[in-house]
Design a protein around this nucleic acid. Structure first.
Lengths: 179, 179
DNA sequence: GAAATATGAATGAACG
DNA sequence: CGTTCATTCATATTTC
């Protein structure tokens, strides 16, 4: 009953030794190791098992994030952690949600309905975009005339001369987009 | 390092269609689209789901940065090494590995102390990744000595064995869309 | 064996 | 623009 090779990419699992080393390094308080450090560490850890820079990097990132997160939970704090809104920090209640968050990786590309955060709530005016539900054919939608412009690299001289098209600097952390 | 503005509560998730379009545009070699282009793209993509200029801009930036990271061998890692066990018989059945790695938490974090003999990992009778498979370097890398390096921000060049990542490697996502 | 949990991996958003 | 943070997702592992 099983299939055959499904290209199951198993995620890297640190060996105890690797974990020990990683923990130790993390405990050094070095914070986030630089890329160079990452390489060193990777090199070191590769002696104890297969590992890559990305693995090490991810590990540190996760470790950091996890530490931060842990502190905020109801660790030693007083009881009564009432959540007013249904917002709740979904943390461990992964699939407790009614919605199906777990989509097979094969189908991950498929439209999962609409998980976009719609500001329109309460009025039930959630407009499930039918377009998303449609299968995306290689030709994409249709009215992509826009693409025609974009596919033209020479089309840059369109607005570049206006003098007003400054850099994207203002794009950095603006809140004007009212998202 | 003060008030981190993480007011971004809801994270925009591109729909498959949007992703396709974005990928397409990015692949056109347009590089970083102008502001005008961004607007056009946003407009087009908004037909397939909620999106903003900022989202589009971020996406392109991230995409670009990611691409560059790969060739530079930054954190982008180099070799995607899975577990040595990851041969080909990997099936969707979780039972494939048969044998649970029963490593007590005591060993998982392994407070170390001063003990060097990590025989504890001997539980590898079911360990999915035999570490002995890896060839030990003649210099017998010391886990601890690496820490010294990390403590020294100035000394990044210690092992000097990192001469591996040169070629292009795709570590990142393996988008299956567009199939 | 399924659920719950832990954690590695992917990615959007922010910072400098 | 490169790097880092924060959040989510997927899968391994542990528990019931």
């Amino acid at each position: 009953t099983l299939g055959h090779k499904m290209t199951a990419r198993q995620r890297w699992t640190p060996t105890p030794v690797q974990l020990q080393i990683l923990e130790r390094i993390f405990d050094q308080g070095t914070g986030t190791p630089s890329k160079q450090k990452i390489k060193d560490i990777t090199e070191e850890l590769s002696q104890h098992g297969q590992i890559s820079d990305q693995n090490v990097y991810n590990w540190f990132q996760n470790r950091r994030a996890r530490s931060k997160r842990k502190q905020h939970g109801g660790v030693g704090s007083s009881n009564n952690n009432n959540n007013n809104n249904g917002e709740s920090e979904v943390e461990t209640e992964t699939e407790t949600l009614n919605g199906k968050r777990k989509i097979p990786e094969s189908l991950r590309v498929l439209p999962d309905g609409n998980n976009n955060s719609n500001n329109a709530i309460g009025t039930a005016s959630t407009s499930p975009r039918p377009e998303d539900l449609c299968f995306q054919s290689p030709e994409m939608s249709s009215d992509l005339h826009l693409l025609g412009v974009l596919s033209n690299p020479r089309d840059d001289h369109l607005v570049g001369k206006m003098g007003l098209s400054d850099s994207y600097n203002l794009y950095d952390h603006v809140e004007d987009y009212g998202m």
